[in-house]
Design a binder for these strands. Structure first.
Lengths: 231, 231
DNA sequence: CGCGGCTTTGATGTTCATCAAGTAAAGTGG
DNA sequence: CCACTTTACTTGATGAACATCAAAGCCGCG
């Protein structure tokens, strides 16, 4: 049942929603006392491919990119994680080392728990286990569906897809500052930097959006949705 | 602890390995009695996109494809599941309806458990929960990594990738019968049927493999690996 | 204030999808 | 079992989509 009497310092943390109703008060309070909060600036590395996984990391605020090294120095961005997302999501339960790197693309705050403790909690608390499974499932589904969608879109469709993603799922506005470079957009949706720029310019000429540096303002979101669907 | 005294009729089922050591004898025996085994012929539908999920399905023997309807009548194959894989893996813990369809591409036998019962077991048995999480994690990782790899390969690299997949992960031989049509290969690795055929013909001309109908014999697997890497 | 990374545009060539047309194979009804 | 229909397979020709190469302006930062 809802528990508003928890007195630990996680009180005003949104992440709590995942644990509340699942973990009893004592246990939660104990975990909160042991959790570690970390601050990262835009551009800071949070962890790197190959490092041992010993924490269970949550994104409290900010925005981070999960990416892997690819041949030719060019990285491939797996996904962008938003607040409330797990950061050590993939591989955390299937590997001992991270299979990808994570870097902050906006100033971010993470919250880490000891992985051993989380695993213990999964084993001893069924409701918590179930909520982890649901969250894991949902995140994987999103990444898989996104990747499948992307694979069958042309360049215009891909740019539309990623712009709509930022507008509708990250910033909830039609005007926002791109948190990534043109190159990173390319790494995220598998196209060259030049074609990212070219396609954005086309959209500008077609009066679908305005561009000033990193700022994008979408005028005609319906047209963009149409391009995304048909691309 | 190891339990070799289980007497239920799942005794000679390979799938047991996932449950043994995790679930106590009484419970396992009870579950085995309630499980349902189903036979499917090549081409039979196992379930369809949109149907309610009320079972937890395992592939005991055979080979199945997970796919989703795509615009233009052409499907997109998400992955091919092998024996011991979950079939109702994606969406089972994040949706009430299947988000994709499953069809047998070889004669197959599935094993289903009541989903409510599985969920109950997750909540009450920590070790079982943990093993489900690990399996879920591993499968998602494989699908995600495969999709990311594929996205940055050219046509030759993709064909090499899928041929190596069959040779090294499904049939464990250099000669095998393709369980899928040329069109389905295209749907799996996102390319047109014509180009699947063309690329296979190229490989034949390059003396990398021999083709007789559905049968593929790989002569030069090293060359294929090289194409896979560089493509 | 100069260097390196980011952005932009244009020119060029490669890769790939599409269209067309034909053969082989496999299912279907009389 | 054979004629018939459909589906799978194959090859070639063409054009569109896209990557690559090149060159220049811009911006932030040491």
């Amino acid at each position: 049942m809802p528990n508003s009497s928890i007195t630990c310092n996680c009180d005003n943390c949104d992440l709590k929603s995942l644990f509340v109703n699942r973990v009893d008060t004592d246990k939660l309070s104990e975990m909160c006392n042991r959790k570690i909060e970390k601050n990262f600036h835009r551009g800071d590395s949070i962890f790197n491919e190959g490092e041992d996984i010993d924490e269970f990391i949550y994104l409290k605020t900010g925005l981070v990119k999960l990416f892997r090294k690819s041949k030719g120095g060019r990285d491939q961005i797996i996904t962008i994680a938003k607040p409330l997302d797990f950061v050590s999501l993939l591989s955390v339960f299937s590997n001992n080392q991270y299979q990808y790197s994570v870097t902050a693309i906006e100033d971010s705050v993470t919250c880490s728990f000891d992985l051993v403790e989380i695993k213990h909690l999964i084993k001893t608390n069924g409701n918590f286990a179930m909520s982890i499974i649901e969250k894991l499932s949902m995140s994987s589904d999103n990444i898989i569906n996104g990747s499948l969608e992307l694979r069958q879109k042309n360049l215009r469709g891909r740019i539309a897809f990623i712009l709509l993603y930022f507008a509708e799922h990250v910033y909830f506005k039609n005007e926002f500052n791109l948190p990534v470079s043109r190159r990173e957009i390319g790494e995220l949706i598998s196209m060259t930097t030049e074609n990212v720029i070219r396609t954005l310019s086309e959209f500008r000429k077609d009066k679908i959006l305005r561009i000033y540096g990193k700022t994008i303002e979408i005028f005609n979101i319906e047209k963009l949705r149409q391009i995304e669907r048909l691309g």
